[in-house]
Design a binder for these strands. Structure first.
Lengths: 162, 162
DNA sequence: GTTAGTGTAGTGTATATACAACATACATGT
DNA sequence: ACATGTATGTTGTATATACACTACACTAAC
């Protein structure tokens, strides 16, 4: 009987911490996803910085341009962000004059469109974005990029599952 | 001569905004990476919430456990985070008592280790993490997960390139 | 040994993000 | 018309993140 305790100093016989840590370290999708996002965001930030826009803002500006005239809620759903996050992030783009509120809208919501200033910024910044893209391809590997797109399409199909 | 202007209302002949927007929307690695990270983080958050820990904190706690006894700077390098980010994120884990500072350390740095409380939390929370993992696999597709790991390994080889 | 360089931790500031709670607007059912 | 339900936008709060700067500690060069 005593030998059982003697030969095992782990608190939890079934799941020693070392095994849990190994399993999570090897397999955690969330940890890796976030780490990749950090590295990639820093990369794009560094190339976009001279243009006075950062990576998430560039991303949002393109989203607004793509959607044409959309409410904060619509943009949020398309970009998988909270309404409140959209409100705050758009406030910065509005301050910079890169996007505008559509004044003619009835009453409840004030759709957002890209401004001429915003378009000019995109045209000016897109070469830097392309350089960042190239670096990202080198960093992640060309074939990973394809998988990335496919992944995102899977997400799109599973609307609001989290 | 006049017809050239007549048939093209774009400001920039070479790169109409619509093409730029299309290109970025289709191809931007940063946009997609961040969107995936948001969705995945929310997923893990929802499963970990009952345990009083969120996704990034769980991730960091496992990282600390894995590294054994590491300085903030070392953890930051391994996890691709700024030292200052590490300082603040670890402060929360310290407050909760999930990690501890090693007191015996000489003087300049105070290495961090996981505490017994932290180990207990991991043991308690890991089943929820496994459920989140399963949902993530369903969401992204089994084969994408493998690519994700490979991607991260590529990153690891390219130390501090951004 | 004093100086110059490097590495570590912390603080100030700004942004990204989510959740909870609220006020308002719209939509329906009765 | 009124009550109920649902969608939109905002604000408060907390956390994650990076950059710039500061304060130390250690190291090496002289």
């Amino acid at each position: 009987m005593l030998y059982i305790h003697y030969t095992n100093t782990m608190t939890n016989i079934g799941y020693p911490i070392s095994e849990i840590v190994g399993e999570v370290t090897r397999e955690c999708v969330m940890t890796r996803t976030r780490r990749i996002a950090r590295v990639i965001t820093n990369l794009y930030d560094s190339y976009l910085r001279p243009h006075g826009i950062n990576a998430p803002q560039f991303s949002l500006l393109v989203m607004v341009a793509k959607m044409g005239s959309a409410s904060r809620a619509e943009i949020g759903r398309a970009n998988r962000q909270e309404r409140s996050t959209l409100t705050r992030n758009l406030a910065l783009l509005l301050e910079q004059g890169w996007v505008e509120e559509v004044v003619s809208a009835g009453g409840r919501s004030r759709p957002i469109i890209i401004s001429e200033t915003g378009k000019a910024l995109l045209e000016q910044a897109v070469p830097s974005w392309r350089t960042a893209q190239e670096k990202a391809r080198q960093l992640l590997g060309q074939e990973s990029i394809g998988t990335l797109l496919r992944m995102e399409n899977n997400l799109a199909q599973t609307e609001s599952s989290a």
